[in-house]
Amino acid sequence: MSVRLHPDVVTTDTDDGTVLLNERTGRYWQLNATGGQVLRQLLDGHAAPRIAAEVAARHHIDHQRAERDVAAVIEQLHAARLVIA
Score class of each variant (00 low, 15 high):
61 I>L: 12
32 N>A: 12
21 L>G: 02
8 D>I: 03
7 P>T: 10
65 R>F: 05
3 V>G: 00
81 R>N: 12
33 A>T: 14
66 A>F: 04
7 P>D: 13
10 V>Q: 12
73 V>G: 02
35 G>N: 03
24 R>Y: 15
21 L>A: 07
6 H>E: 15
37 Q>S: 12
25 T>K: 06
46 H>A: 07
18 T>L: 02
68 R>P: 03
78 H>S: 09
74 I>L: 15
32 N>H: 07
40 R>H: 14
39 L>P: 03
41 Q>F: 05
23 E>H: 06
66 A>D: 09
54 E>V: 02
10 V>R: 14
37 Q>V: 05
40 R>C: 03
28 Y>P: 01
79 A>Y: 09
18 T>F: 02
19 V>L: 15
24 R>F: 13
7 P>S: 10
9 V>T: 08
79 A>S: 14
44 D>V: 01
74 I>W: 04
36 G>C: 03
69 D>N: 05
22 N>L: 10
85 A>H: 15
62 D>W: 11
53 A>P: 01
63 H>G: 06
24 R>E: 15
18 T>Y: 07
23 E>M: 09
64 Q>V: 02
43 L>G: 02
16 D>K: 13
64 Q>T: 08
66 A>Q: 04
71 A>D: 11
5 L>C: 04
79 A>M: 11
42 L>F: 09
22 N>Y: 08
85 A>T: 14
61 I>A: 05
71 A>L: 04
41 Q>R: 13
36 G>P: 02
57 A>C: 07
51 I>W: 00
64 Q>A: 13
64 Q>D: 14
45 G>K: 09
33 A>I: 12
